[in-house]
Design a protein around this nucleic acid. Structure first.
Lengths: 293, 293
DNA sequence: AGAAATTACGTTTCGCGTAAGCATG
DNA sequence: CATGCTTACGCGAAACGTAATTTCT
């Protein structure tokens, strides 16, 4: 049994003969005839009483028609209902994120979102990783896309769902001596002036213990792009997430792996005490589909 | 979209991964994977959020699943419901018919009927054509299968629906002179002793005006078989419906066409003031399928 | 390395259309 | 003989299975 048979049967029952039904459905008449026959064989009962040229529904046929109508109409409506459900997804959706995400990662996601779900008012709120917790708790934002907040407070109100992770890599001028190495260690790096993020960022928090002690820091910035200007001029070496290095076109700058694999975990933070809105779920799905592994 | 895709989708959603769903449905895993992909393309939206190896329903997927479940279960139930409806057809069905029908035409129909609809109590009531009207009106029988009642009374309470018609033919011994002719006329026939039905039969009524006046009647019987005994011994010639002649094996008896085509119309009579019961409708359908043209 | 999903490709199944065959009126 | 249903047969699309490829744990 399949949809075609149900549609052929329904139309034939309505028309009273196969020929007219076939014409209305733009198929040949034997095609309809055969499908009806197969249907009757499968159901093991006659649906039409062939009375000469005329067709009349049998008792079983009438019963079957009732169900066939319901199914056919249900199927016809599924597409519409799904598209309609999109239109019904509305409300506001405020998303917190870092500077790089705001500039490079989220624009195309937001674009998709407002095109597919035009009734959702999306707003992006640029902030640092350690600000997110407060913004979430004070309901300024619904979700944040940022590095994992590792403070691991006793209060587990904020939940983190990873979208992807990225290794930290060294970036330095091609003129720098480190550019000649394939992997570099923290000891080597500490010999050079360091360019890094401000203490309120997620990357800083990961690096602080292992690297930053006793290092000579020449620049602390919130913005990778600002850091790269200094690096390009070989004023120092920096450590940034690999995914950011890949997103930027780096002129005269090289990327080198670290000998320890420190990763930064990017994902969604949200307040578990409040359920995720449909809009938020959809946004996460889109984000995950684009950048998730 | 088709049933296969709905079933694959439903099972996959229930299992949480494609491999297990495919195993449970005894198909290969790529088959399921491809159908799901086609389904998503047709609906123009993702149904599953591919999160690494793991599958999770999207918002649209959840909505779609709800409808898919309904449809799949409806389809699964159709067969059962139709068969169940048969069981539900019950009650008594009394059928009036002539002697030939009772002996030769109805047994296999009744057999089918009580096998497919075991809760219907079928009873056959043998009677003559002109008795039927009274039996119907007094509710002794629900329907009658007999020759058309041509009295055409002013009261149109009894409706006739033809199942088939049959020409009247001459039957005579192969020794009879008429056996040498291909078609015979009433004038020829009247030269021989006539064997015919009793006046209370449908055939008699058709013949009476044209043939029976001034004829020498040697036997009037209710039963074709009795008539045939006389004919076999060449004691006379008879006129019976062609379908009866075809049903019997006739030893030493030949069948010849008449030069005028007088037909007897066999069908269902029923009282229009009472609706046909489901059981009656089914019986008529079976009868019509077997003998209707 | 192992498990799960997708892609690629050859095979089989299924539905369709044309043409021919029957039946009805 | 005209209309309508069924059967026969060849063609093209669709679904399937095996095997190779990719991706994540």
């Amino acid at each position: 049994m399949n949809f075609i048979q149900l549609e052929y049967f329904k139309k034939t029952a309505e028309c009273g003969n196969i020929t007219m039904a076939a014409k209305k459905m733009f198929v040949s008449q034997p095609a309809v005839s055969k499908q009806l026959k197969l249907l009757e064989e499968e159901l093991e009962c006659k649906l039409f009483a062939r009375r000469g040229n005329r067709l009349a529904l049998t008792l079983e046929g009438e019963l079957f028609l009732k169900h066939a109508k319901e199914i056919v109409s249900k199927v016809k409506n599924i597409k519409d209902e799904i598209n309609f459900s999109r239109k019904k997804v509305s409300g506001k959706l405020a998303i917190g994120c870092g500077a790089v995400s705001a500039k490079l990662l989220l624009p195309n996601i937001v674009d998709k979102m407002i095109k597919e779900y035009p009734d959702v008012e999306v707003s992006i709120f640029e902030a640092e990783t350690n600000e997110m917790r407060e913004l979430l708790e004070s309901d300024v934002i619904d979700i944040s896309f940022s590095a994992e907040d590792l403070r691991g407070g006793s209060e587990k109100k904020i939940e983190f769902k990873e979208i992807f992770s990225s290794e930290l890599v060294l970036v330095c001028s091609e003129k720098c001596a480190l550019a000649r190495m394939r992997k570099v260690s923290f000891e080597e790096i500490k010999k050079y002036p360091l360019i890094t993020y401000t203490p309120d960022t997620g990357v800083y928090r990961v690096l602080v213990k292992a690297l930053l002690e006793n290092a000579r820091i020449i620049l602390q910035s919130r913005y990778s792009e600002t850091m790269l200007v200094y690096i390009e001029k070989n004023l120092g070496v920096g450590i940034i997430p690999e995914y950011i290095a890949r997103l930027k076109s780096l002129n005269g700058i090289v990327v080198r792996k670290l000998d320890t694999d420190i990763k930064i975990h990017m994902g969604i933070n949200h307040d578990v005490s409040k359920p995720l809105s449909p809009a938020a779920r959809i946004f996460i799905e889109l984000l995950s589909a684009e950048y998730g592994k």
